[in-house]
Amino acid sequence: MNAFTIKDLENLSGIKAHTIRIWEQRYNFLKPQRTETNIRYYSTDELKSILNIALLNKYGYKISHIDKMHPGEIRDRILTIGNAQAQQERIVNELIQHMVDMNIEDFEAVLDTYITARGVDKTITQVIFPFLEKIGILWMTNHINPAQEHLVTNIIRQKLIVGIEGAFSHVRINKTVLLFMPEGEHHEIGLLFTYYLLKSKGVNVLYMGANLPLKDVEFVANLKQPDFLYTHLTSVAANFNFERFLTNYHNRCGSHKLVVSGLLTQQYKKKVPESVTFKLSLPAVMEFIAALA
């Protein structure tokens, strides 16, 4: 069974930790256990419960009324919410629940159903990326089993590759972006999503993949002279030093502009070399891609 912290619940549900604590005191749907050092932790069932309750609460149901509902009624009420954004959030929550339960067939079935109804493009932007944004924090904190991560990311990787292969733009942008991930970074999903976004806008992409020595990146960059190099950092090996990587990049490849996105950029507080730019959110990434035109 997975054990989740109150911070995990906050990140996944959007409900602030202090609100979760108040709900615990006043209502019955959350009963965390505690470690020997008196730190709260929550079960898989409690995670699934808070996801559903937070969704109902966000779209108009009072928490005191939700507390009186049985789980089946909560699920039924969620299905009746007509708001399109709410339904997208419901799908994302279902993916999270199937992941923590390791119901991989159901996980893929949810994606396939959405693809059939909305197409690969909308599935990537409306469901897959919001799912990755929510779940990325669990990958960083090791609060899910690596087996869960591998099974889920391989499915998503397949869907993204299908989307990339089918991506087409009638407009061709005369810009080239080289995509890579440094040594120690194996989480390819975020970079594949960027590949999809760039290709769908008509940008030429050179995709080098994951876990690359900087000398290989330098060789291709000098040979192909892309307009930008781009990397996405989600969760790297323990011996990876972000500051050292940025310094080495600037020293070896400083003539090439590097754009960095991903969770690690949000935690980096030191000075960034002149040749490097951080994109701290999806809107920032989208603005960068739009500015290439």
Rank of each mutant, 00 (worst) to 15 (best):
A147C: 09
D67H: 04
V120I: 09
G254R: 03
H65A: 14
I155T: 01
P130L: 07
S281T: 14
V272A: 04
I189T: 05
A147D: 10
M69S: 09
H250L: 09
P182N: 12
G136M: 07
D8L: 05
N103P: 12
V127K: 02
R90H: 13
G136T: 03
H143C: 09
K224P: 12
N103E: 14
F228S: 00
L229T: 07
F278V: 01
L132S: 12
I289Y: 02
H18K: 11
D67M: 05
S281I: 13
V152K: 00
D121S: 10
T194A: 08
N248A: 12
L178Y: 00
Q88T: 01
F228G: 02
K201P: 06
L95P: 01
N154C: 13
T247F: 03
L206A: 11
L214C: 08
I78M: 15
V152M: 09
Q97E: 11
A109K: 11
F129E: 06
A284I: 04
T277Y: 03
K257V: 07
D45F: 03
K159P: 01
L282T: 06
D216G: 14
F107R: 08
S64A: 12
C253G: 13
Q267N: 11
F245P: 09
F129D: 05
L79Y: 12
H186A: 11
A293K: 10
G262W: 02
N204K: 11
T123H: 04
L47I: 02
E105V: 07
M99A: 10
S13I: 03
V162W: 14
H70N: 06
Q97R: 12
K62W: 13
W23R: 00
K134C: 06
R21A: 10
V152A: 08
T141S: 11
I144F: 12
N145C: 07
S281R: 05
I115S: 10
T265R: 01
R244H: 07
T234L: 09
H18R: 13
N2D: 06
W23E: 00
I6D: 04
A290V: 10
V236G: 01
I78H: 02
G166H: 14
N251F: 12
N204S: 13
E105G: 08
Q87V: 07
V285T: 11
L292F: 14
G209L: 08
E183I: 08
Y42W: 06
I15R: 00
R26Y: 08
